Computed example of a mutant assay.
Amino acid sequence: MPKTRLDLARIRAARQVIDPVFLDTPLYRCEALEPDLGCAVSVKLETANPVRSFKGRGTELVASGLAENGSRAVVCASAGNLGQALAWSGRGRGLYVTVVASRFAPAAKLDRIRALGAELELVDGDFDMARERAAAIAERDGVRLVEDSLDVETCEGAATIGLELVDAGPFDAVLIALGGGAMATGVGHVLKARAPGVEVICVQPGGAPAMTLSWRRRQVVTTDSTDTIADGVAGRRPIPAVLDDLLLVADDAVLVRDASIIAGMRLLFDHAGLVVEPSAALGVAAILEDPDRFAGRHVVTIVCGGNVDVDAYHRWIGATPLPPIREVDHGPESHGRVSP
């Protein structure tokens, strides 16, 4: 495999460091979804853990390394899930954790960060503004800044999902929510190394397309704003090193509408009994928008998070779902600019 920051031996070793509570999450074929989706669908349920997202796999590696080196404090920016995970992992190792987040993040995620003992600082902006503030705190206090996706531990922790998928296969394709890229690059790396015939398809909201546009152009594309209910993947500024890793492993990157995300959340609730946040329904949304592509295939969708604002959730799934809509071509010239 061409040069990448990820290492398969380290990913295998990560399973010995990560608390087993985050490992071997449920993976099962969900036949109840199949009449609506037109293909065989297996669900990898990354909400069945104490922080209700896959992020704990990566923060376990980060916190373990910090504790071994004698560090006592750490800071991160978060849309909500990383902050919870780092707070959980840090608490168990005696680390003082500061999380910077947008005050517009779902209240349930912010409340849980506080409940897990982290210091929470809010900014009047989006995730990228929170990232800038977290970097300033790290420099001021001389503490470790954890940057999701940039820090290879977050990618290699997520990559352990890929080991579990390979052991349970075979599958034809895996649908992975794409935000900063930790899960997509980590899982993709394992699949390309161990099961190269599996198609790796990344899915992102059309209202937050920066990483997908970057993948399509093979260079970093930034956007001025985001407009999507999928707050967990709503970044504007892709990290160049992460894009380099993604280009090696992703077979495709697609954009979907928020209406399809909502329809996917409704299907997961009605037919699988799952309460998921919008980012976790991206894979189902991709199937809804392009059913012919997946017809007759066995597809895995990674349900990556279940931390959702209850009021918003009821508004979304209480509405009458729209009929499936084929993907609109959010082409490489839409909504983005190429970074110099």
Rank of each mutant, 00 (worst) to 15 (best):
K3A: 14
T4K: 02
D7F: 03
V17D: 10
F22N: 03
T25W: 07
L27F: 15
L27C: 15
Y28H: 14
E31R: 15
V41L: 15
S42F: 05
V43D: 00
T59C: 14
S64V: 03
E68A: 15
S71C: 10
R72L: 05
A73G: 09
A79D: 07
R91E: 06
V99S: 08
A101V: 02
F104Y: 11
I113D: 12
I113A: 07
R114Q: 10
A115H: 06
E121Q: 12
D124R: 07
D124L: 04
F127Q: 04
R133S: 09
V143A: 05
L145M: 13
V146H: 02
V152D: 04
E153V: 03
T160R: 04
L165H: 06
A168E: 11
L175M: 14
I176N: 02
I176A: 08
A177G: 08
L178A: 08
L191G: 07
G197I: 09
P205I: 00
P205M: 03
P205E: 00
G206H: 01
P209L: 12
Q219H: 09
T226K: 13
D227G: 04
D231L: 07
G235E: 02
R236H: 04
I239H: 14
V242R: 00
L243P: 01
L248Q: 15
A253F: 11
V256E: 00
R257V: 01
D258L: 14
D258K: 14
I261Y: 00
R266E: 07
L268P: 00
V276E: 01
P278S: 07
S279D: 10
A281S: 12
E289Y: 01
D290A: 13
A295C: 06
P321H: 13
H335Q: 12
P340Y: 03
